[in-house]
Amino acid sequence: MSKITSDEVRQTATLARLELSDGEVHRLTRELDAILGYMESLASLDVSGVEPTTHAVPLDMPLRDDVLEALEPHLPVDLALLDAPKRHDAFFEVPKIIEVTE
């Protein structure tokens, strides 16, 4: 039985804003199905005696002191806006993003 349907792949692609052709949907469905199959073989292992791991690397969270770096903590505005598709004065300009019904 397949672990994922092509509809679920399409839905996931929509959420991730990915535009997929029918061919890509079929290929990805097959590949994801195989990946989920590997997961299933992991699930068949008995891990009852193993401590749960929350992260692959045994590191403590490094913490940073709350200080503004003395040297150029910020990008100059023109540099910050350099890659903006469009700018309006010192703002990034984007298509209107609020949607309401009255």
């Binding site: 469009k86 309006h88 010192a90 703002f91 990034f92 300009e93 984007v94 298509p95 209107k96 993003i97």
Partner: peptide, 9 residues
């Protein structure tokens, strides 16, 4: 009335 929004990060 404008078709765009402005963003400040």
């Amino acid at each position: 009335g404008s078709p765009v929004s402005l963003v400040d990060y």
